[in-house]
Amino acid sequence: EVTIKANLIFANGSTQTAEFKGTFEKATSEAYAYADTLKKDNGEYTVDVADKGYTLNIKFAG
């Protein structure tokens, strides 16, 4: 089991951190699915992958 950390960075400057656990593939998939649910209210997003994929910096356009 691994932990994927998602740093969520919103257009208004606020930030939030979420963690997803499971296999690497499952946790990564859940992180992207979570970002997709936030897209409606926060706009499109870009992802900067860090720490060999264990950290995702997800920035929303607003």
Rank of each mutant, 00 (worst) to 15 (best):
V2A: 08
D48S: 15
K39H: 07
Q16P: 02
T37K: 14
E1A: 11
E30V: 08
F24M: 08
T17I: 11
D48E: 09
V2D: 13
Y54T: 10
D51R: 04
L56A: 01
G13T: 08
G43W: 06
T17P: 10
K5A: 11
F24C: 03
Q16L: 08
D36F: 05
A35H: 01
T23M: 14
Y54P: 01
E30Y: 03
Y45E: 00
N12K: 08
T3G: 05
I9P: 00
T37V: 13
A6T: 15
K52T: 13
L8H: 02
T28K: 09
N12P: 05
L8W: 10
K39P: 01
T46I: 12
F10Y: 14
N42L: 06
K21A: 06
E44S: 10
F20L: 02
N12G: 10
A61E: 15
E1Q: 14
E25P: 12
I58N: 00
N57I: 14
I9S: 08
Y34I: 05
A61M: 09
F10I: 04
N57V: 14
Y32T: 09
E1K: 04
K52P: 04
Y32D: 01
I9M: 08
A61N: 12
K59W: 10
S29C: 04
G62D: 13
V2L: 09
E30P: 00
I9A: 10
I58P: 00
T17E: 10
D41G: 10
A61K: 13
D51G: 04
F10N: 03
V47N: 02
V47P: 02
T15R: 08
G62K: 05
A18W: 09
T37N: 14
T23S: 15
K21N: 11
T55A: 05
D48Y: 11
S29W: 13
Y34Q: 03
D41P: 04
Q16W: 14
N7E: 13
E30Q: 10
D51M: 09
N7T: 12
D48P: 01
T37P: 02
F10W: 06
T46P: 00
F24K: 13
F20N: 00
A50W: 11
A33V: 15
I4G: 00
T37M: 12
K21T: 12
D51P: 02
K21M: 14
T37E: 12
G53A: 04
L56S: 00
T46Q: 06
E44N: 09
T3Y: 05
T3D: 04
K40P: 07
T15W: 14
D41W: 05
K26A: 15
Y45H: 02
K39V: 08
V47C: 03
A31G: 04
I4K: 00
A35G: 02
T28L: 15
A50H: 13
F24N: 07
F60Q: 01
S14G: 15
N57Q: 12
K52R: 07
Y34V: 09
S29N: 09
T46M: 15
T37F: 13
T55L: 15
T3A: 10
L38W: 08
D36Q: 07
K5I: 10
A61P: 15
E44Q: 09
E25F: 04
T55D: 03
K21S: 11
Y34M: 11
V49T: 10
A18F: 14
G43A: 03
V47I: 05
